[in-house]
Amino acid sequence: MLSIRPHADLDHVPFEVDGLSPDRLSSMSLEEIARLPAWLGNRCLTLGECSTLEGDPADEAVHLQGDWSRAAGIASGMTSGSLRVGGSIGPRLGAQMTGGEIVVEGDAGDYLGAEMTGGSLHVHGDAGDQVGGPLPGTKLGMKGGTILIRGNAGDEVGGAMRRGLLAVAGSVGNDLAMDMRAGTVVVGGAIGTDAGLGMKRGTLLLLDPSLTPERFHPMFEEACRYEPSFVEIYRRELAKRAFPLPKPWPTTLIRLVGDQLELRKGEIFIGAT
């Protein structure tokens, strides 16, 4: 395993290292890794000048120690291996990743897992805005893989999501799953305004027991109350990944359908009291 700890003075400026992901580092020596260009603000240094490197990267396992909350684009495009972040990390973690596993013990920034197509991201703390969404200038969000957030997340979570599983144990901000194409979003806590607006297909499973059908945008209409079998499959998958599940987990669910101005094939499930 390769351990990287940033020097303390990185706290105050943005930090970006192109290609810092386990799969790419695994074929490099420590010296080669130390020579990777690292942008510290508008200065181009090397990773070795900005951080302390220890261990062996050959096993595709990387441990980022210390505070990486200013570091952007870490593990973007990652294809395999495992990355563990001991503290918090900045924006675009795992953006466009296609495989591998990332665990963040602290918080994660905006655009977490943006446009990812595979692999898994597990954040023990909170995450920022646009989780699983499209990167600026593009149309579609995540197209596969799994994002699990044990804490809260910000606005526009799951925006324009095309495929995959995104679960937030806590609350989320406004515009949840805006323009969603497909996939599944699970939220255990409170939600902001305009959830699901513009969604064409896809599933929102919203487990806050205080939610009622009247709480949603007029573009969503109640269809029925029933016990869909597939929800239990998701519950078990989340439980298998030690994801904190709301208790009690509702068995009978209310299905709302929308956005009525789109295909009317998007669905929001809330618990039936």
Binding site: G144, R163, F230, I233, E237
Partner: peptide, 11 residues
């Protein structure tokens, strides 16, 4: 019909 793809299995 709606499909759900989870852990490589499509339902």
């Amino acid at each position: 019909q709606i499909s759900k793809l989870l852990e490589g299995r499509r339902y």
